[in-house]
Amino acid sequence: MALLELENVQTSYGAIRALKGISLTVEQGEIVTLIGSNGAGKSTTLKTISGLLRPSAGEIRLGGQRIDQLPPHRVTELGIGHVPEGRRIFPRLTVAENLEMGAYTLSEKNAVADGIERSFKLFPRLRERAKQLGGTLSGGEQQMLAMARTLMMKPKILMMDEPSMGLAPILVEQIFEIIAQLNQTGVTILLVEQNALKALDVAHRGYVIQTGEIALDGPAAALRADPSVRLAYLGEI
C-alpha cells in the first residue's frame, strides 16, 4: 500500500475546475516530484492534499485512511507536512517561535527543544537568527526556516511547494542537496517544482501535470529522457 494515494481528485475555484481528476501515489521513502507549467495545478494539488482546499470528487488516502474531507489541522496531525509556496514564514514571530509553531501538534515534553536542536544542526544559519523576527530573514534563510518548521512536526510525508523559487542559484543547489539528504534519513517527499531539471535529478519518480490533469508519469530518469518533457519543461531540444 502506498503511503499517499490520490484517486481521481477534482478541485474547483468557484466555477473554474483547477484539478480535473488527479491520480498519483507516493511510496514510503520516495522522492516524488510533480512538475508542470504555471497554473497547471501543482499548488492546487498540494493544497487539496493538505486540506486547505476541499476536493469536489475523488479520494485522498494517507496510509489507507481517507483524509480528503478533513480540515487542514487534522491532516497535519495525521502526518502530512506542507511547506507552502512562498515559504509563508510568520513575519512577526521570531525564528524560534516559528519553529515552535511547527511542533504545535506534538505533545511530548521535549518535542520543541529537541526539534529546535535538530533544526539548528540541519540549518546552522538559523541558530544565529533564533531571536530575530521571521520577516527580517533573507529569502534563502526563510526557505530553510520554512523547511525546518515543517520538519519539526516529524511528518510522515513532506510536501514542498517550489522550494527553489526566487533563490540565487547557489542557494538552489543547497536546497536540493538538503532535500536529497533528508530523503536519505528516511523522509518521504512530494516535491512540486518549476525547476523540472533539478527536481527530476533528485527525485525517484515524477508526474507531469498539465491543465489539471496528469499528462505523463514514470521514473525520473525516464521523464528526464522523454522528448516531450525535454522540449516543454527542460528547455532542451
Binding site: 478541485t11 475555484y13 468557484g14 466555477a15 473554474i16 486547505l52 487542514p72 489541522h73
Partner: peptide, 12 residues
C-alpha cells in the same frame, strides 16, 4: 457571480 462563488477554503 461565476468567479466569485464561495472558494472551497474551509479554514484558510
Amino acid at each position: 457571480a461565476a468567479l466569485e462563488g464561495p472558494l472551497p477554503v474551509p479554514a484558510g
